[in-house]
Write a protein that binds this DNA or RNA. Structure first.
Length: 117
DNA sequence: ATTCTGACAGCAA
DNA sequence: TTTGCTGCCAGAA
């Protein structure tokens, strides 16, 4: 899936990130690293975050609020306009947030490998 | 073209 | 244990 010039294809890393993110079920969350590994990039978790940073440029809504870091911390909350937006969205889905951390993170965690294969 | 930065993660001191 | 450095890859300056 060579990126000829620009990120045109639907097969580039960014689009893959969006697709996986859209597969996250309601009320569940996953981590940047998990997505990165699922996509085969291993340690390029930062790219996942970078991709999600551009997700608002996408035609379809991407539930980026369901992606947190490996500790379950809402490190990206500052990118949702208001610092409380991400938190609100998660709370809206029945996820409890305390001090920017997801409670029962392990239970809420959605692993692409386990769920998708 | 080169350098810096970034919504992370893993390992070393 | 806590801090901090490096690897990762793409985009912006």
């Amino acid at each position: 899936m060579t990126r000829y010039g620009k990120k045109t294809a639907d097969n580039d890393f960014f689009s893959m990130v969006y697709e996986v993110t859209k597969l996250i079920p309601y009320g569940r969350v996953t981590s940047y690293g998990a997505i990165a590994r699922y996509l085969g990039s291993g340690r390029s978790a930062r790219m996942v975050g970078w991709a999600l940073n551009a997700c608002h440029n996408m035609p379809d809504p991407v539930p980026a609020h369901r992606v947190v870091n490996r500790h379950g911390l809402l490190t990206g909350k500052h990118h949702f306009g208001n610092s409380t937006t991400m938190e609100q969205l998660l709370i809206n889905e029945g996820i409890i947030i305390e001090d920017d951390a997801i409670l029962n993170f392990k239970e809420k965690f959605w692993d692409p490998f386990s769920e998708l294969g």
